[in-house]
Design a binder for these strands. Structure first.
Lengths: 233, 233
DNA sequence: CGGCGCAAACATACGCCGTAAGAAAAAGCG
DNA sequence: CGCTTTTTCTTACGGCGTATGTTTGCGCCG
């Protein structure tokens, strides 16, 4: 039953309301369930009505990632430990993404460079600068942490998605692979996968933060070393 | 002109040919240009014909990420320096992703757990294990590096996309932001953005590898420390 | 209080999409 | 050559995003 209103009374529909309904719909039924007609039904309104509040579907999707990005508290950095602040920020961002896993593909492909986000970024850069990072390195740190969090969240959500295709909930190996064929892989996945993902996240995050700290304290860059990368022309 | 053949001669169409044409089309005109009808035209064939070689559009998209993943050489690890091998692997993966930026959203949302990929993963895990990582930490390392690379590639491609919306090629600030409002941000972006992105990638990658090396050499885990994260219930 | 302007909501229509179902054509094979 | 098998084409259905034009009811001004 599509939330009908007695015909004639106005909805007072709002961009915010549209975005919230869209986010709820995506959380409930996935990205592919989000169509203008469907979202209209959800709000008791015709599809075209939504165009009074969002320019088009692209803008609606942009609005979804905006909702998520704005929901995470900006990094709180005191000069004593920039690492603690970045760690909290990374965890908060991961939590926000995990709360809306179906939006992650959107977050990945849409840069969130709205004005409020840029201000958050600017203040974070200032804090990191006061902690001893040169400006461009501060940007490196912020970008790297967010990139890492987003990539990790994407991988985790993709795995959860395929894991739900086989809809049995016994805790056995979700990817049933031959222990003889993949001994190390099976050994590595023996740990409870949920803890494993979180543990991996913490492990790599600590490694990154430690690496950044090492780069910060040493004036000379700790750059590549013997580098044999290849690059496209 | 849609590559017509004189009616009657057969194409000898192949799954591989379909995937290559699809990848070329996506590279040329973006993900949204990839439809079964359009891809059929590209190959001089009706849309439904494609279903003889791919089960449905989902499978075709899976095939696209498969193409990319298989195109990057597996990590070559000699016991002397696991870091060099992982660094090369990261660079190769980044290069492959940057060659097909429009496929990145697909790579992000589709776990590439096909049999050949699992074998590559297994052999990488063995090498890392021989370098002194416990099995689960080896998995952490591989996952973290790939997550990081994918996240970084996604961010870079998203930025390049918005940067092309304003189609002027003067090298000025691609995100024209007020230097008074965002002093640190503008300072940080003063470096040539192309080099900046690559430099940031190398910087963070080295930090991660250094952090992993530190974790490997110390038996005691270098875990979080004073942790004030919050988590959803 | 009455009418009117205007923004919000509705209704219709167009050209796309993915793909199910069946006809037709080509290719292999005795 | 006829028969089977596989590939390709044709048609059709429901759903999509949205351009376009009409209706509706609230708030304001006289």
């Amino acid at each position: 039953m599509p939330a009908r209103r007695t015909r004639g009374q106005r909805a007072g529909l709002t961009r915010q309301a549209v975005l919230e309904a869209a986010l709820a719909l995506v959380d409930r039924e996935g990205l592919q369930a989000l169509s203008m007609r469907r979202l209209g039904n959800e709000l008791g309104v015709e599809a075209m009505t939504l165009y009074n509040h969002v320019a088009n579907k692209e803008a609606l999707l942009d609005g979804l990632v905006e909702q998520i990005v704005l929901s995470v508290a900006p990094p709180q950095l005191d000069a004593s430990s920039w690492q603690a602040g970045m760690r909290d920020f990374a965890h908060a961002l991961l939590t926000a993404l995990r709360a809306h896993p179906d939006v992650i593909p959107l977050v990945v492909s849409r840069p969130a460079t709205t004005a409020p986000n840029l201000h958050v970024l600017e203040s974070t850069l200032r804090s990191l600068h006061e902690s001893g990072f040169p400006a461009h390195r501060a940007l490196d740190v912020v970008y790297s942490v967010t990139n890492f969090v987003v990539g990790h969240a994407a991988t985790m959500s993709a795995q959860n998605a395929t894991e739900q295709d086989t809809d049995d909930d016994q805790p056995g190996p979700l990817l049933d692979l031959d222990a003889d064929e993949f001994p190390f892989l099976t050994a590595a996945m023996r740990v409870e996968p949920r803890i494993g993902a979180q543990g991996r996240f913490d492990f790599a995050l600590e490694a990154m933060l430690a690496g950044f700290e090492a780069a910060r304290t040493s004036a000379s860059a700790p750059e590549p070393g013997p580098d044999r990368r290849r690059e496209q022309p």
